[in-house]
Design a protein around this nucleic acid. Structure first.
Lengths: 229, 229
DNA sequence: TGTACTTGTTGAACACGTTCAAATCGAGGG
DNA sequence: CCCTCGATTTGAACGTGTTCAACAAGTACA
């Protein structure tokens, strides 16, 4: 299985494998890293690596967990710094970019896997729902702690919408080969205030129907995987 | 190379290989189809398949070309049927869904490849720019032939924005396992009028700055691959 | 200590995508 | 007809991800 018991021994082996994999991913990229090399550096056999991880792709989950943890930590500082919605959005996204930076080289491969339906790494998959829920909760905190008053219709769904916004930014970042992801930073700098503005405008009579329809649609379709229920 | 001379003989061999690949993709999915099986059904050797196509993924280009052609043809009828912007949007997207339907099973694998940076199949890649330009041109025709008056600021960039909108719909569709892609159809039915409404609202004084900023941002960042120039 | 059972580990073997040196084909010139 | 040369075709061979039967180590209980 993929998730064997958590004895101290197995825990240690598992960590050795993840550490070796992350090292090699950084050094050689995803493609350039072979399972044989990962096993060798971890000091175990190939078969043993497969005892802990069902596939090469699953090794990436290690990177993913690491990333989520680091991002969440960084956001605490962001949330403490300002109550302005645009500031908080900008800070949150820039913090993600900073945390993900070292892995940009193989992130493409990662998100390509994640883009596949039925892949456990997919952000919409059942396997990802804890990470997804955690991420959405982060955005709920972002909204709740901001000074912008959000209409109650929108309030419930806004965190999920902002999570989708982040997904879009990440998608752009993956394809961004500019130095230091400068273009993605530009994207964030420009869109964060626009999104914040849109949230404020959503209470206007002209916009309100659109806002309401958006919420209804997301609630209708979302939750989990599009085909899920 | 990938693109050997176009003698009648090589042309025929190439077509045999593409045909065999598409058959097998439909029958067994992408993963379940081996290059050996493709070569066998096409009546050639494995090496010969690689003489024409640099990789298994490149075989998908055949499906892609087929799809674009069919979609474009279907849109002619859509454009003739109505000048209402929402109708035209809805029709265009539903036509895409109809054309792509038979390939839904392996479309996930396809778009996963496409999601990878540096992959020629990526919609942002240089190799795809003809297909991308053609697709954007389709949306320009959609806009130009509609009865909705579009502000001149937005007019130039709107086709590209709508193409991005389609990209989002496709992304959803790939993950949609509901019968007959019913959920994606719902998404289209709801969002097409909303997008059309948004286009109309974009001329309002409250919205106009947002619209202008959006256009500026897209023009600043877009064109090609984020890191491109 | 011995015995049954679970957990952890091994490395050879398999099927696949891909490569490549060599064989074959086919048109043009002698 | 033969020769030449590039385009086309072959299939064995390589490296890869993955599987699996077998084995070792650890654990619980008598």
């Amino acid at each position: 299985m993929t998730d064997p018991g958590a004895s101290p021994k197995s825990e240690r082996t598992r960590e050795q494998i993840v550490a070796a994999a992350l090292e090699l991913f950084r050094e050689q990229g995803y493609q350039g890293t072979t399972m044989r090399a990962v096993a060798a550096r971890a000091g175990v056999s190939v078969g043993n690596a497969y005892y802990y991880f069902g596939s090469k792709e699953e090794l990436i989950q290690g990177f993913y967990d690491h990333l989520v943890a680091e991002h969440t930590a960084a956001c605490a500082a962001v949330f403490a710094a300002s109550t302005d919605l645009a500031d908080r959005l900008r800070g949150t996204l820039l913090a993600w970019l900073a945390a993900a930076e070292p892995y940009h080289r193989f992130a493409g491969r990662f998100f390509a896997s994640a883009a596949q339906p039925e892949n456990p790494l997919s952000p919409f998959s059942r396997a990802s729902s804890p990470a997804r829920d955690a991420s959405i909760a982060l955005y709920r905190e972002l909204v709740d702690g901001s000074s912008t008053r959000v209409g109650e219709e929108l309030a419930g769904t806004l965190p999920e919408l902002l999570w989708l916004y982040q997904l879009g930014v990440v998608l752009y970042w993956v394809h961004d080969s500019s130095a230091g992801a400068a273009r993605t930073r530009t994207l964030v700098e420009h869109t964060a205030p626009m999104v914040a503005r849109l949230v404020r405008l959503s209470r206007l009579p002209v916009i309100r129907p659109l806002s309401r329809q958006t919420v209804q649609l997301v609630d209708l379709l979302s939750g989990r995987h599009p085909g899920g229920g």
